[in-house]
């Protein structure tokens, strides 16, 4: 009996020094990791919180910080969103942006899959130089191209038409996707294609039935990256589109909702929130592909 009664204190006293040590390292870990991490998260996410809360605040609260705590809403309202959806052509802008993003993504996926396959698998003389040229094309930023492109678009008779955007966005999507897919095709064993060649398959059959099904994760990564990049594009859409109803969401919010001296901050924030949501939802479904394509493209 006495032995069993004595037994419990012994382990606890023995465990005491490691426990204090572990407590020490835990508090140290708290200060060196969790506190900075929490600060980062707070700063990175605060603008989104502020955007959302402003979108649902009635104007009385929005411009009166003395009687209402600005960090919270006492009587949330959907007025700003109603104004946006029914008082402006916002649904139209969303539709245009969606169409442009999907079409340019499909176009650049087709072009870059074929190009990446040719460069990585068909291995012709000088294929590495074509690859290098496409890599260099990615380094040409839209800011130096938009003025001459505006004249090109005008000459083609596509000025003020979303088709211009669908054709122009691949200039920055194709280099990125090709680069990503070259890396992806590289990871597919060459032996599979050789087997198919011996079995009498044509090159196109190999591409369609062997390489492409294996490259589906790479295609998804390239696709969602292209979709987000074209959704976010601003400078071409600003320069090439004039009429109000053909604008894309980012341009329209900035040029159509900001009129005169009085800014409708509630509606502006509601527009930003709604414009961010499609990308954010899309992103949340494919976040792993997204991260892997981002890091894969950097490592490649």
């Amino acid at each position: 009996m006495s032995a069993t009664a004595e037994a419990p204190p012994a382990p606890s006293s023995a465990a005491a020094p490691p426990e204090t040590l572990s407590w020490d390292s835990r508090s140290r870990r708290m200060v060196t990791i969790w506190v900075p991490l929490a600060c980062f998260l707070l700063i990175l996410l605060f603008p989104f919180y502020w955007m959302s809360i402003t979108a649902f605040k009635p104007n009385a609260e929005l411009y009166d910080y003395n009687t209402h705590n600005p960090f919270w809403i006492t009587s949330p309202t959907l007025d700003h969103i109603r104004l946006l959806l029914f008082g402006t052509s916002y649904p139209r802008w969303l539709l245009t942006t969606m169409t442009v993003a999907i079409c340019s993504t499909v176009l650049s996926l087709i072009a870059s899959t074929l190009a990446a396959y040719a460069i990585q698998r068909l291995r012709f003389k000088g294929s590495q130089y074509v690859g290098l040229a496409i890599y260099l094309a990615y380094l040409v930023p839209p800011s130096i191209l938009f003025i001459p492109l505006a004249t090109v678009v005008f000459q083609l008779g596509l000025f003020d038409s979303p088709i211009a955007l669908i054709l122009v966005y691949p200039t920055f999507l194709v280099p990125f996707c090709t680069w990503l897919l070259i890396g992806y095709f590289k990871s597919i064993p060459f032996e599979l294609e050789e087997c198919a060649l011996i079995d009498g398959a044509t090159r196109l059959q190999i591409l369609r039935q062997i390489t492409l099904p294996l490259a589906v994760p790479g295609l998804i990564s390239a696709g969602i990256f292209s979709f987000t990049l074209s959704w976010n594009e601003f400078i071409y859409a600003l320069a090439f589109i004039q009429s109000s109803e053909r604008k894309t969401v980012p341009v329209a919010i900035l040029t159509e909702l900001v009129t005169g001296d009085v800014y409708q901050w509630g509606a502006l924030m509601a527009g930003s929130l709604l414009g961010s949501l499609p990308v954010a939802i899309f992103y949340s479904f494919f976040v792993d592909y997204y991260v892997s394509s981002l890091t894969g493209a950097v490592k490649e």
């Binding site: 991490l37 980062f40 990175l44 603008p47 955007m51 980012p250 341009v251 414009g275 954010a280 991260v291």
Partner: peptide, 27 residues
């Protein structure tokens, strides 16, 4: 992975839209 996902959020949301949020923060 959840932390990584939400940390990337500022980068995937259209720049102009977050810029408008900053414009409001800097009002």
């Amino acid at each position: 992975s959840f932390l990584r996902a939400i940390i990337l959020l500022p980068w995937i949301v259209p720049t102009v839209l977050t810029a408008i949020a900053f414009w409001w923060i800097y009002n």
